[in-house]
Design a protein around this nucleic acid. Sequence first.
DNA 1: GACTAACCGAGACGGTACGTCTGGTCTTAAG
DNA 2: CTTAAGACCAGACGTACCGTCTCGGTTAGTC
Lengths: 200, 200, 200, 200
Amino acid sequence: MEDLTGSCAKPQRRSIGAKRNPATEEAILGAAQEILRDKGVKGLSMEAVAKRARAGKATLYKWWPSRGALLVAVYERAKGEHVHEDKGTLIATMAAFYRYVFDFWRTAEGQVFALIIAEAQSDADVAEALERYRKERLVALAEVVDRSQARGELIEGAQAEALAETIMAAAWMRLITGRLDSDPERLAHEVLDGWMVGNR
Amino acid sequence: MEDLTGSCAKPQRRSIGAKRNPATEEAILGAAQEILRDKGVKGLSMEAVAKRARAGKATLYKWWPSRGALLVAVYERAKGEHVHEDKGTLIATMAAFYRYVFDFWRTAEGQVFALIIAEAQSDADVAEALERYRKERLVALAEVVDRSQARGELIEGAQAEALAETIMAAAWMRLITGRLDSDPERLAHEVLDGWMVGNR
Amino acid sequence: MEDLTGSCAKPQRRSIGAKRNPATEEAILGAAQEILRDKGVKGLSMEAVAKRARAGKATLYKWWPSRGALLVAVYERAKGEHVHEDKGTLIATMAAFYRYVFDFWRTAEGQVFALIIAEAQSDADVAEALERYRKERLVALAEVVDRSQARGELIEGAQAEALAETIMAAAWMRLITGRLDSDPERLAHEVLDGWMVGNR
Amino acid sequence: MEDLTGSCAKPQRRSIGAKRNPATEEAILGAAQEILRDKGVKGLSMEAVAKRARAGKATLYKWWPSRGALLVAVYERAKGEHVHEDKGTLIATMAAFYRYVFDFWRTAEGQVFALIIAEAQSDADVAEALERYRKERLVALAEVVDRSQARGELIEGAQAEALAETIMAAAWMRLITGRLDSDPERLAHEVLDGWMVGNR
DNA sequence: GACTAACCGAGACGGTACGTCTGGTCTTAAG
DNA sequence: CTTAAGACCAGACGTACCGTCTCGGTTAGTC
C-alpha cells in the first residue's frame, strides 16, 4: 500500500491577492518537515518540497532563494526555544542543556542543524544565518554563566561569554562528529570543572 | 601554441599493466588541487576533475568511490603533519597551534577541511574518515597536554584527553562559523586559563 | 529618478468605472510594439507586455485571451490598409504589391505576421483570425485581378479568385521561407506570365 | 483504461561505449512519434519525449539541440520519399501530388510539417533545415515540370523552377491555412491552366 | 610468443535536481 | 465593474553532475 501524494489531503491553495499567502508558507514548511521524517535529509530537494506542498517551484524560490534558506526556516520552525532551566549549579544546568540539544539533534528535525552547518560551508547566506543564530544562542548561554558567576561558582578569571562559547563548541563538536550519544553529565564536567571554584 | 586545458602539458597516460598507475593518481589529485585554486570548492566536481586530469570517470570512481573520498585524499595530500612545537607553556604552545591551523584553513587546500566536515554530515564514509582523523589528531594534542601536566602546569582535576578535545572543539568551532581571524593567543587563554595552576 | 521599465514615462492608469479603459488598450498594444522593436518577437511574452504597459496580467487576458489574440491585435494595429494602386498592367500592380508587403514584413511590426502564421498552426483562434484576414485580403486582390480581366489582359480561362490566391501564396511562401529579398518584379512575372494574353 | 508507460515495454538501454547508440536514437524518435499520435503536437515537449523514451534529457539535447531539430528528425523519419508518378499530363501528375501530400499532412506525422514551418519562424536552425528541404523538393518538382515541358505541354515562356515553386506555394498555402480538404484536381487546374499550351 | 587480466582514456547513457521562465487563474484594494 | 498589482500552481526549459556502463587500446605477467 502506497501513498503517492503525501500524508494528507492537500487542498488547492490560490492567491489571496498581491501579498504573501501564509497558507502557502505553512504548506511548504510542513511538506519539508514531512519529507525530512519520511525520506531523511537526502530527500529534501526543492523539487520534492514543491511537489509535496503542491506549490510552484517559483514560489519556493521567491521566498527561500536557496536550499540553505529553506533549511534554516525549517529549523527555526521546528526548534523550540530552549530555556535554560536553572538546576542549582552550572554543571547541572549545562548537563541538562547538553542532554536537551543532543536529544533534539537526534530527531528528524534536529538533524537539519547539521545540514545547516554543512550548507554554511559553501553558502554565504546560510553562513550568515548560522552566525546570527550562534550569537543569539551565545547570549542566552552567557546569561546562565553570568548568573553562576554571580553566585560565586566560578573562579575569578572566568569570562562569561568566552566560557559560553567553549561550552557551545563542545556540543557542536559532538554533533558534527556524530557523537550525540556522549554522556551529557560527563561532558559538562570535562568542559567546566577547571573553571569552578574549589578545584584549586 | 597554448594550453587550453590547464596549467601544464598533460601527456597521455596509458595503462602500465594490471596494476594501479601512480601517475594517474598524481594527475588526478593534482588536477583537483588546481581546480580548488582556480574555481574554488564549488567547482570541484568529479566530472571536472576527470576532465582536467584527462582521466576517465571510471578510473576516478575506481579509486575514490565518492566525492567525499576524493576530498579526503586531497586534504591528506595537502596538509603537512603539524608537529606541536613546545613553546615552554601550554598556552603558548596552543596559541602557536591555533595560529598554524587557522592560517592553513584559510588556504585553498585548507578550505577542503571545512568541505570534508560538511560532506561528513551526509556521507558516512567521509564521516568515518573524519572521525579517524579527529582521533589521530586528538592523540597528538593529548600528548602535548600530558607533557604540560607532567610539568605541573595544570590543576589536579584536568584530564589530558578531555582537555585536548575542548581545545580542538574551539578551533573547529571557529572554522565552521567562519571566524578564522580570531586571535590565537586570546583564544588559547579563553580555553585554558581555568585549567592552569595559579588561577585559584 | 529614472524610468527603468521602458522608453517613456508611464502614468498610472486607473479604472474609469464599469467600462473598458481605452488608455489601457492603447498602453498595452503600444508596449507590445515597443517590445517588438527592442527585443524582437522572442521577447513578446504576455508577462513582458503586462510589465511594460504597467497593466495587470488579468487585464491582458480579459481583452486578449491568448498570446495569439494579442499578436493579431498588434498586427492589425500596425499594418496600414494597403490599397492596390493600379500601375496600368496587372504585372506592374502586383510587383508593387509584392514590394510593399515584402518591405513591411521586414519591419519589426511586419515580422509579427510570420509569428501569427506560426501560432495559427497550434492555436485554433489564431488560425481562425488568420483565415478571416486571408479571405479579406483575397477579396481585395481578386478585385484587382478582376479589373485586369475586364481590361482584357488575362487569357480566357483565368478565374480571378483562384489567380489571386496563387499570387498570395507566392508571397506567403517567400515570407515563411525567409526570402523577402526576392525581386518583386521578377516574382510577379513568374507567377502571372502564363495567364497574360499574348504569351501564346 | 490507461497506459502509463507507453505503448510497449521499454528495455533499458545502456551505453555502448564512447559512441552514439543507434537504439537510443530509434527509441527517442519512436517515442516522439507515439506522443504525436496520442497527445498531438501540443504534447510534444522535450520533457515528455525523454520520459517516454526512458532517455535522459541531456541525451536528447546532445543529439537534437532544440525542439525544432527533433521535429525535423521526426518528419524526415516519417515522410516517405514521394516519387512523382507520371500520370501522362502535368495537371494529372500534380493533382496526384497534391492528393498525396494533403493526405500525408493530415496524418499525425504529417502535422509535424506545419509545426516545422511554425518553428522555423523563430528558430534559425529549423529555418535552415526547412530551406534545405524546400530546395530539395523543388528540384524533384522541377524535373517533373521539365519533362512536361519536353513533351510540349507548356507554353514557351514557362520556366520549370519558377513554375515548380508556384505549384509548391499553392500546396503550402493550403497547409498553413488549414485547408487540406481542397480538391487536388481543381487546385492543379487553378495553378497550371494558364501555363498549358492550348489555353490560348 | 600467444593469451589473459586488469588498467586506462573516452564518453554515451539514464537519471535527478537545479534555477529560470512563461502561461493562465485568482484575490485584493483602489477607483 | 474596471484597473494595477502581483501571488499562486503548473510544468517546460536547458544545464550540470551523478554514478554506471561499454568500448578500444595498452601493458605486465602467465602459460
